[in-house]
């Protein structure tokens, strides 16, 4: 039946004059494609299409890319184009109107919010999309299990703004590692331009200054890899880069309990260096989002989207947080 239809179509389309061979073949090919494609197109209800643009956090690059991949498997015509140039680039792009979606690994400052309101007259929609944390890691065989805030500060900073009395330079200075005979603590961290560097400085060093002998790596995974290779190393990195090659230390909270950086503690916020990851959306009040954006957000808020966040090494949101954002 198929061939009959094709010939019919072909003769119909080439009714004037004798068909040239190439034209003939081309048309036949087109007709077959048409026949094959029709049932597929019918099978899908209300196709969503378009290219989504997002500009923002470098930390969330992997996560956004995976969400984009999953979105494309759901709706083959939707593509997510993500420009990872740091959290600070998201507010600029949102104000400029070049994107409607701004993923950020920190909440917006009030100044950034005001800039947007000044331009558009309404506030941005703030969505929490996952939870993340900064971890302090040591080699997997290192007996050290927990550090106080002051100890972290004494190890990584010169300023000791969190109130430690003396700098800690050697493993013998920590009670847990008195027998860890590897001499000086080799420090690893991120480079100046990264948000991780800034956040660690602000939250773990109490705003103080880093030591200048920290090896600065261009990526968190490079930090983890370096610490996993040397027994005398300690470093800080994003939680999503944790591998069994290193051990993530528990941190003492203000109440004096050591909180391990596990999923539960990060999800609840008990772990001192945990944070939300955000997606800022430019949505005028009373309007609804275009279907492609809508599809992305419902994917993120769905169970599948949160599983993808977990697969990328982040921590899913609690059901209560998800429910609070349920209207999206």
């Amino acid at each position: 039946m198929n061939t009959r239809l094709t010939t019919l179509l072909t003769t119909f389309l080439t009714d004037r004059g004798s068909p040239f061979a190439i034209r003939h073949i081309l048309l036949r090919y087109a007709a077959i494609t048409l026949l094959l494609a029709t049932p597929l197109a019918w099978g899908q209800s209300a196709p969503i299409s378009g290219t989504l643009g997002a500009v923002g956090s470098d930390t969330m690059a992997g996560l956004m890319l995976r969400w984009g991949e999953s979105l494309t498997t759901r709706y083959p015509d939707v593509k997510l184009q993500f420009q990872a140039s740091g959290s600070a680039s998201a507010p600029t792009a949102l104000v400029a109107g070049t994107t409607r979606l701004g993923p950020m690994s920190r909440p917006m400052t009030s100044e950034e919010r005001d800039n947007f309101i000044e331009r558009y007259g309404y506030p941005l929609l703030e969505l929490k999309v996952a939870r993340d944390a900064l971890i302090v890691v040591v080699h997997r065989h290192n007996p050290l299990r927990a550090l106080t805030r002051q100890q972290v500060d004494a190890i990584f900073s010169t300023s000791r703004a969190c109130g430690a009395e003396a700098p800690i330079r050697r493993w013998e200075q920590l009670p847990a590692t008195r027998d860890w005979s590897f001499g000086r603590i080799a420090l690893h961290g991120r480079n100046l331009a990264s948000g991780t560097h800034g956040l660690f400085q602000e939250r773990a060093l109490c705003g103080g200054y880093f030591r200048n002998d920290i090896s600065e790596h261009p990526g968190s995974s490079a930090v983890v890899a370096a610490v996993g290779e040397s027994a005398n190393a300690m470093g800080y990195a994003g939680f999503n880069h944790l591998t069994p090659a290193v051990h993530a230390l528990s941190l003492y909270n203000d109440g004096g309990t050591a909180i391990p950086p596990d999923e539960a503690a990060i999800q609840s916020g008990d772990y001192p260096l945990s944070r939300y990851l955000y997606l800022y959306v430019n949505l005028p009040p009373g309007e609804t989002l275009p279907p492609a954006e809508q599809a992305l957000i419902s994917l993120i808020m769905s169970d599948e989207g949160q599983q993808i966040a977990r697969a990328s090494g982040f921590v899913p949101l609690t059901p209560s947080v998800l429910n609070a954002q349920q209207r999206w």
């Binding site: 331009a193 090896s215 600065e216």
Partner: peptide, 29 residues
């Protein structure tokens, strides 16, 4: 090199060179 901005002559310590600093910091500046 580890990119540590140190003044040290020890062969077992890292250093940070101008070229490397340009490559990682200039796109963000």
């Amino acid at each position: 090199s580890g990119n540590t901005a140190l003044f040290s002559a020890s062969p077992f310590e890292g250093m940070r060179s101008m070229a490397a600093a340009i490559a990682i910091e200039l796109p963000e500046a």
